[in-house]
């Protein structure tokens, strides 16, 4: 098993014919992902790396049975794209786009809940299950090794660094999911933890958090009550000043909430093992066995 994406995942890429779309369709196909369709209005009949392009998600779904969408369309059109995918029956959406207005994200996250669909992101690198040859997103393929550690993270490059250091030690991953750096995201640490807890392939979980909001505090409380698998964590932004947005839209200490100190304290209380440096995660997991 794995979480959210596996061998049954059939991907339609929204925003397939742009530079990013073309490049990452190629990368996903090389990873072994079943990319079955692309959507760019007005480009029906074209192909990208042999993948057929459709004008609408509905047509793509009817022709190819796609069940998962990768959203690469510009921020201004993302809400429309997500709504379109949800109405076409897509059940898992991975929204890579950065700078989507928060109110738009709030609307499509709630519509997805109403539809019973999973939204990962926005402003995320996507998700990869190396053992299932399924990658939906823009994560670099070379860093993954299949195995039993589940990774969920609010950041991109920092996660690659951590995953890479795990792989270098021979510690493989079941699924690695980038949850996104925005304040409003679809899939939270709690959702990922629940999925990893259920997943027989996952034996330990790594969370990569950062300042802003209370997602880590919420997760810590959830771990205490519901998660039996060991959890390891790294929190970025211990030295970030309040009121400054540290690169990610969601990485801001606002009105006294969202400090690294509070998150570290909550995780410690929940028995989560914390790393001081990103690569120290691999030491902790290795020591645990």
């Amino acid at each position: 098993m794995s979480i959210f994406v596996d061998t049954n995942t059939k991907v339609v890429v929204q925003g397939a014919t742009g530079h990013q779309g073309q490049f990452h369709i190629g990368e996903m196909l090389n990873f072994g992902t079943k990319v079955v369709a692309g959507v760019t209005p007005g480009k029906q009949g074209e192909e990208v790396h042999g993948v057929p392009i459709f004008n609408t998600v509905q047509e793509a779904v009817m022709e190819t049975d796609a069940n998962t969408s990768l959203v690469l369309v510009p921020a201004r059109f993302s809400k429309d794209a997500v709504f379109e995918a949800l109405d076409a029956g897509i059940t898992t959406l991975v929204v890579i786009t950065e700078n989507i207005p928060f109110h738009d994200a709030m609307e499509f996250v709630h519509y997805a809940m109403y539809k019973g669909a999973v939204v990962i992101g926005p402003n995320c690198p996507g998700i990869a299950s190396p053992g299932k040859k399924a990658k939906v997103g823009i994560l670099p393929s070379g860093i993954f090794v299949k195995g039993h550690v589940g990774v969920a993270s609010r950041s991109g490059t920092l996660t690659y660094e951590i995953v890479n250091s795990l792989s270098e030690r021979g510690i493989g991953q079941s699924t690695c999911v980038g949850l996104g750096g925005d304040p409003i995201i679809g899939t939270t640490f709690i959702d990922a933890l629940n999925a990893f807890e259920q997943d027989t392939e996952t034996k330990a979980v790594v969370l990569v958090g950062e300042i802003g909001g209370t997602a880590e505090e919420d997760a810590a409380e959830h771990i205490t009550q519901h998660i039996r698998k060991p959890v390891f964590a790294f929190i970025a932004g211990r030295t970030a000043p309040p009121g400054k947005r540290m690169g990610h839209a969601g990485a801001i200490i606002a009105r006294g909430k969202g400090t690294a100190k509070s998150k570290i304290k909550a995780f410690e209380k929940a028995g989560v093992k914390l790393a001081s440096f990103p690569t120290e995660i691999a030491d902790l997991v290795e020591k645990y066995g």
Binding site: L158, G181, E210, P241, R245, F277
Partner: peptide, 24 residues
């Protein structure tokens, strides 16, 4: 973002940049 210290950090990715500041 300008901060109070004297070491300029350049990294790729917000999380990695924050983690670098923390390491300092």
């Amino acid at each position: 973002i300008q901060l109070e210290g004297n070491i300029g950090v350049i990294a790729n990715g917000a999380g990695l940049t924050m983690a670098t500041l923390d390491a300092l």
